[in-house]
Amino acid sequence: MRLVFWAGFWAFLSDQASKYLVVHVLNLRDIGQLDVLPPLLRFHMAWNEGINFGLFSNSADTARWFLILLGFAISGAILMWVYRDPPGKMGMISAGLLIGGALGNVVDRLLYGAVADFLNMSCCGINNPYSFNVADIWIFAGAFGLVIWGGSKKAT
C-alpha cells in the first residue's frame, strides 16, 4: 500500500503545483491564453464545472458536490480493491496515480468551484477546443494501468 500512497502523493502534488503555477503565478485566469509551443501546446484557461468536456455543467452547484462525493467514493473503492486483492507493483502505482489525480480535481472543486483545466494541444490543422490538466493525465494513466496490471499478483 506504500506504493499507492507515494504514487498518489506525487500525482496529487504535481497536479496542484502545476495549477498553482498556471492560475496564480502566470495569472492565466485573467490573461486566458498563453502560447507555449503553438499550435502544439497552449495554456488555455477553462473552468470545468461538469465532467469531461463540460458535460452536466448546467446545475453547477449540485454537480459540484456530487462530483466531489464521487471523487472520494471512487478513490475509496480503488483503495479497498487494491487492499483486498493487491495487484503487482505496476498495479499499485496505477491505483495511486488514479487516486492522486481524482483527489487533485476534488481539491479544485473545493477551492474554485470548478476544475482548473489549462493544457490545450492541437496538431496537424486540427484545432482542439478542449483543455485538460495534469490530474486528467494521471487519472487516464492510472485507469489504463489498472486495466493492464490490475489483476491479482497471484494470477498467472
Rank of each mutant, 00 (worst) to 15 (best):
C123Q: 05
V115M: 03
A114R: 05
N127P: 00
H44E: 03
L119N: 01
M121D: 07
G54Q: 00
P38T: 07
F118N: 01
F72H: 04
L70V: 14
S131I: 12
I51Y: 00
Y130D: 09
G50F: 08
F43M: 11
G113D: 10
D35E: 11
A102E: 06
G100M: 15
G54P: 07
H44N: 10
A60M: 04
S131M: 02
N128R: 08
L97T: 11
W65N: 08
G101R: 13
G101S: 14
S131C: 12
G100L: 14
M90F: 10
L98C: 12
M45E: 00
G125T: 15
F66H: 01
G96E: 10
R42N: 13
L34W: 04
K89V: 14
I51L: 11
A73F: 13
G50T: 04
N120R: 12
P86G: 01
M92R: 13
D30V: 14
N52S: 15
L69R: 01
R64S: 09
R84P: 01
D30A: 09
L69Q: 06
F53Q: 07
D108A: 12
R84G: 02
M80A: 10
D108V: 11
E49I: 00
W47S: 09
N48H: 05
L98N: 01
N133T: 03
S59H: 08
S57R: 02
Y83T: 14
M80N: 10
S131P: 06
R109M: 03
F56R: 00
L79E: 06
Q33R: 15
N120E: 02
F53G: 00
L97G: 08
V115G: 13
F53K: 06
F43C: 07
P38L: 06
G50Y: 05
G125K: 09
L70S: 09
P39F: 09
M90Q: 14
K89D: 05
N48M: 04
A116K: 05
P129W: 07
N105I: 14
F43Y: 13
P129C: 13
F132T: 04
Y112G: 09
R42T: 13
D117A: 03
Y112P: 06
S122M: 14
I99G: 14
I68D: 04
G101I: 11
S57F: 03
V107E: 03
V115R: 07
A77M: 04
D35G: 06
L41V: 15
L37I: 15
N127I: 06
W65V: 08
I31N: 15
L55R: 05
N133K: 10
P87T: 08
N105S: 11
T62Q: 07
K89G: 00
P129E: 11
F118G: 00
A95L: 09
N127E: 15
R84H: 06
N128K: 03
